[in-house]
């Protein structure tokens, strides 16, 4: 099967450039299966080692603010309402009403049909991809399972983009990936990327969710990361948050290594987004350490690293309040979400 290059030339051409032959299901498979295996024990012990770093005082203050700036404040429940999205947006714009120096989060992440509500609630604070303000991210492509026809996935994506989404979080077809049909997964990512094109010709940022909890092995995570990047992902994201295990430190470390390899090969920076299961500041700081040690501090930027989280923000705010006031704070002093 030859991948249809007319869909989107740019991502396919970077894959061809790397693989060095015609882009076929077979050549893609040969390339991905030919990636060296992951040393699982080494990876986990490296992650455990990074998790032991102690971040205190001024570094901690900086880390907490950085975490807030990197958060995609997320609500992805079946019971979401426009009102819930409004309160989420209010929290994104002003995370801690008792302390106006608190930075804003990077984006709010909602289901596609609530994008318009999020955009309306943000008003002038909507970054729309610009350098200041808050982006609107939408999950698309039959999130979280990804079990729908390509036409449905593309329509899902295009609608969210038309409604004003600046970032699209798509899920890959894990069934196809696990049965070895890498070409199909590749094609779908390329097609969704094309569906991210706005009327003006610019593109919404595409985050590709690998759902590492369903990929079973580190080798598969490495393959899926390469596949997503080759197909044109701007970000690779660990999980939907609906499957356990969600983001773990070793998996994120592995994805960062792939991103680092890609940067060395092409000079292009791809983002990473761990999502799901990161609830405490302590955990989040471990991720910051891992990013800084693996791909460098320039990745600690909302364009290149995000946390997909909802309850994490409250914990960070409690820690921040502890540092500002000198005494421990409690859940009565942050908003319930």
């Amino acid at each position: 099967m030859t991948i249809d290059q007319s869909v989107a030339l740019a991502p396919a051409s970077r894959a061809i450039h790397l693989i060095g032959t015609d882009l076929t299901e077979k050549s893609l498979k040969l390339h991905l299966d030919g990636l060296s295996g992951v040393d699982a024990v080494g990876l986990e012990s490296r992650a455990a080692g990074l998790a032991t770093r102690s971040i205190k005082t001024t570094s901690k203050v900086w880390a907490l603010d950085t975490i807030i700036r990197l958060i995609d404040l997320t609500t992805l429940e079946g019971a979401d309402t426009p009102g819930k999205v409004q309160s989420l947006v209010a929290k994104a714009m002003n995370p801690d009403p008792s302390d106006p120096t608190t930075p804003r989060v990077a984006a709010v992440c909602v289901y596609g049909d609530l994008v318009a509500d999020a955009v309306a609630a943000l008003g002038s604070a909507h970054a729309a991809g610009g350098p200041t303000g808050i982006n609107v991210a939408a999950v698309a492509t039959a999130f979280p399972s990804g079990r729908a026809s390509l036409a449905v996935k593309l329509a899902d994506t295009a609608e969210a983009v038309a409604a004003g989404a600046d970032e699209i979080d798509m899920v890959i077809d894990r069934g196809a990936f696990l049965s070895g049909r890498y070409g199909l997964v590749f094609e779908q990512i390329v097609a969704v990327k094309e569906a991210c094109r706005r009327a003006g010709g610019s593109y919404a940022h595409l985050k590709v969710i690998l759902e590492t909890g369903e990929l079973n092995t580190y080798d598969n995570v490495r393959r899926a990361s390469w596949l997503a990047i080759l197909a044109g992902a701007d970000f690779i994201k660990t999980s939907t948050g609906k499957v356990q295990p969600a983001a773990t430190l070793p998996v994120t470390l592995l994805m960062l290594q792939v991103v680092g390899d890609w940067y060395r090969l092409t000079g292009e920076r791809i983002g990473v987004k761990p999502a799901g299961g990161i609830r405490s500041s302590k955990d989040a700081i471990r991720y910051l350490v891992t990013v800084a040690e693996t791909v460098g501090e320039e990745w600690l930027d909302p364009h290149l690293f995000r946390f997909g989280a909802s309850s994490l923000l409250n914990d960070v705010l409690l820690q921040r309040q502890k540092i500002t006031t000198g005494h421990y704070s409690g859940p009565d002093y942050v908003t319930i979400d």
Binding site: Q321, G326, H327, Y328, S329, G330, P331, D332, Y333
Partner: peptide
């Protein structure tokens, strides 16, 4: 002192 000033006590 930490318990006395703790906002959640």
């Amino acid at each position: 002192p930490w318990l006395a000033s703790h906002a959640d006590v």
